[in-house]
Amino acid sequence: MVEFYYPETLNEALELRSRTGALPLTGGTDLMVRYENWSSLPPRFPGSIMALKQLNELHYIREEDDCLCIGGATAMNRILEDPRIPEALALALDEIAAPSLRNLASLAGNIQNASPAADSLPPLIVMDASVRLVSSAGSRDLPVQEFITAPGRTVLQQDELIESVRIPLSFVRQADARQAEKSTIVYRKVGTRKANALSKLSVCFFAHCEDGEVKDIRMALGAVAATVVRLQKAEEKLKGISCGELETVWKSVKRDFEKAVRPIDDQRSTAFYRKRTALRLLDDFISRLQDQPSA
């Protein structure tokens, strides 16, 4: 029997979760589609459902513990409206589906759904964002990149919920250096139409250049592998080199990192197109950095 639970506090939700393992439903924009039934019939959920949207404790955006924290039930449009949100995340959220979807969908839900093509993941992973998981027994923080293990799979335990998404303030401040034209953010979603498109590919790149040197560079690519790929080894090789040499160094190391880009053919695109486009977007980002006037 599929039960529907409607907890009124987070504690009640956690108690229900550990007792019943009910599937948390916030915006419902993924779950209602995944378990869609024939027209006019209720969805066919595989087990009990627990609504979370009504929990006020999960609707907030605030700074704490050196992080910008976004409550687990906060809808994407509320996040977009907040001026404290880093541009990298705002650019991605703004291109997810359409306004009516973003009024329902939560950022935490986009993470838990763990689609390799989830548009919020490349910026979250570039920003080294983490999730705070809570249960009746306590809480733990995990980087988003470690939280997601495979398409549709995360390490969320049967008794846990995502309490918040946490973006390090150090990144928020570093990205603010944009004002001084020292940092560059690129977010690109490649899809068949502007709104309501599932991504063929989405990428987020960030670089911070100062005194003609690459101080920080981060590159994440979505929908090119089973989970979002961050090119950490490439980042290490590019960090600290002078902006003028960037393109040359990139060309010499690029081949080593192409392996990480191993997309698949599916109904939305082909592996060939995805790989070629991903690499060209990377090339474009590198040449853009090299051409910066400050470089």
Binding site: G28, T29, M32, V33, I49
Partner: peptide
């Protein structure tokens, strides 16, 4: 919002 995605219980 899209009313096709909302369980009435919520």
């Amino acid at each position: 919002v899209n009313s096709c995605l909302i369980p009435v219980g919520t």
